[in-house]
Amino acid sequence: MKLIRDTWLVYARQLGLVIRQPTWVFIMLIQPLYYLILFGPLLNGLEGMPGFEAGAMETFVPGLVIMMAMFGTLFSGFGLIAEIREGVIERFRVTPISRLALLLGRSLRDVTTLVFQALILVLLSSPIGGLTIYWDGLALMMLIVIGIGLALSAASYGVAIVLKSEDALAPLLNTVTQPVLLLSGIMLPMALAPDWLQTVAKFNPFAYAVDAARALFNGDLASNAIWQAAVFIGALMLLLVFWSARKFSRAAA
């Protein structure tokens, strides 16, 4: 099928570029590692407190992985703006290639590097933070990571095509992501929050993702948070990919 072939074509090219210059993949790992090494130990004293029943690292690392999923792909739009400026996107747009493939190929590349980074982070957390890894849960958690990665990378590309300028993209992303991050319970579980904050967090799909990641990480595969996260993240993903695909096919990039 043409869409699959075209997507593969774009994906292979984009992934090839990353493999040729893999430095960025590792630089993006540095920030979560700082959190793991410099912030994680602060939580050890909270073990057993509300929200930390499963253990400090077992609570913190899943949140960290979700944070990585959110920030790892969110800035992909910057690369696209550079490609627009160089005329690469325009060159591709006059060919018969599927417009959706231009988006999907790039987003899937972002998700590939993201999964790779998330695995390294989890594996490193075991020796560094003394984390116990629960493999079945980890595999399912990667699906959530993939969903978030696709959603946010698509969003980033869509916004980049609309704004066409790095100067406008950076502040916009920050304004939107900071509250979403704070309301997701990544740093500290939302169980510690006052009622009104918990209510607000109920509208944040990423809060469900964090809860689900924690449940999966601790082998609690029956938790309600898991299907909730699947529904909310899945819906968000479809919505953002659809929106961005429309921008890709329309924009006079």
Partner: peptide
């Protein structure tokens, strides 16, 4: 699109790949 070729005023190549790679990619497109 299938019938035409278009070369923009300021080109459309990416600096990190080679001419051969760009040409092969173009054929694949």
């Amino acid at each position: 699109r299938r019938q035409i070729g278009y070369v923009g005023q300021s080109g459309g190549t990416w600096g990190e790949v080679t001419a051969r790679e760009e040409l092969v990619m173009q054929g694949r497109l």
